[in-house]
Structures are given as structure tokens and as C-alpha cells.
């Protein structure tokens, strides 16, 4: 099963929204996935335990270490666009 985490500044607002949206999109794509959410600070230290991290574009650079270890870091411009999320999931090959 795919394991992903959504992160935002505090883990209270946008990360929960991202979590809802990506759960919905993965379901649509028939991908079995568990989705966690947390603050960027906490998520960046846990990121290596995940297949992918979904964050607001602003935070992509916070996950360089995880990225170098093969974790897919997905930066979103519009946090609520299912279309953007779906495109980026496919781009990263997470739907396979």
C-alpha cells in the first residue's frame, strides 16, 4: 500500500484540506493508500518513511533530504484543485 503524508505550516488547516483532496483523488484512481497529515517541521523529519509528500508549493524546499532519498515531493499551487492533484499523481507515477 502507498503511504503518503500531507503537510502545511502548522498541520492544522491546509494539510487537512490536502489530505481530504488527495484521498478523494487516489480513490478515484483506484489506488490503495494511507494518508497522514502533519506540520512541515514534523513531516520533514518523518518524510523518509513515506512514498510521497504533498505540500503547498512554498514548502517543497523543506523536503530536500527526503527527495534525495527517493521520496516524491509533490508541490501544489492550488490546494483544492483535484485536477492538479490528479495530474501530479500521474506525473510522479503514483497511480501505478
Amino acid at each position: 500500500m502507498l503511504k503518503v503524508i500531507a503537510a502545511c505550516g502548522n498541520g492544522m488547516g491546509s494539510s487537512q484540506m490536502i489530505k481530504m483532496k488527495i484521498t478523494k483523488v487516489f480513490k478515484k484512481l483506484n489506488v490503495d493508500v494511507t494518508v497522514d497529515h502533519n506540520s512541515v517541521g514534523a513531516a520533514s523529519s518523518m518524510a523518509v518513511n513515506y512514498d510521497a509528500v504533498f505540500v503547498s508549493q512554498n514548502f517543497v524546499d523543506n523536503f530536500k533530504t527526503a527527495a534525495s532519498k527517493g521520496v516524491k515531493i509533490i508541490g501544489l499551487k492550488n490546494l483544492l484543485s483535484e485536477q492538479e492533484i490528479e495530474e501530479k499523481i500521474k506525473e510522479a507515477g503514483l497511480d501505478k
Partner: peptide, 15 residues
């Protein structure tokens, strides 16, 4: 980053 979609801000801190 609190501007979550164009035109819309969601200011907040922690729970």
C-alpha cells in the same frame, strides 16, 4: 502559503 487557492486566504496558527 495561507493563500490556498487564487483569491482566497485561510489565516490560522496551531490548534
Amino acid at each position: 502559503y495561507i493563500v490556498i487557492i487564487p483569491n482566497v486566504a485561510m489565516p490560522h496558527s496551531t490548534e
